[in-house]
Amino acid sequence: MIKLWAAVVGFAAILAAPSAAMAQEKSAVRPGFVLKPGSAKILLFRPKISVGAQSTGGMFEPNADWTAQARENLSAALDEAQAHLGNRVVAAAEPVGPAAQTLAAYQSLFSVVAESVIEYQFFKGNRLPTKKRKGEFDWTVGPGVAALGQGTGCDYALFLVTDDHYGSTGRKVLQVFAALARVPVAVGVHKGFAGLIDLRTGDLVWLNADLQMGGDVRSQAGAAKRMGQLLADFPGRPIVTESSSEGK
């Protein structure tokens, strides 16, 4: 019995199942939504960025230096990409008191809504009956979100989340040996999502979620590529940064 259990746990640890991202849609825009180019002022909330290594056994090894680099690189890449679009991105100030509570609550709510979109709309096999109509994209965090934009003059709020586990040397060696034994071992986790919320209505107007992203966020060029992917299909107009084309 214990052996069986151990085998199960071990199997999971080794495989770290390749994600089901293949069969999945990656982005959607609310029907009828258009962002006039060069017009929007966008409020950016502190991106959730986590960068580290993946140990031989598949554990996440958080790395503070890489995360700090990624934060800097992604911020610069975002400014550049939005300048291309003609939009202005304003980093939100860290509020205090009740405003901080409201912001924390909306950040959590955004994560929950974004995860629900990925699970119940982007993943076709699991699509909710109310989300099945073609072209439908109807998600909201509620009009209360307007409180976050008060006094900033911003029309939209942008949320960014990235999570990167870079395969360690040990993990890569394990992958090679495992491949000889015909056992698939996944190296690395590179997930990210970005969403745009209308600050007047609370509607989620655009969401892009990719569970297998490219671009090494630890370098400036890689971060620019990652940002290009995160902002692919950003409403307004097609993004032109060359690095955003294809390839992971």
Binding site: A7, V9, A13, T56, G57
Partner: peptide, 8 residues
Amino acid sequence: TDVMAWAG
């Protein structure tokens, strides 16, 4: 978990 990965 490293040991487990190799042993497995």
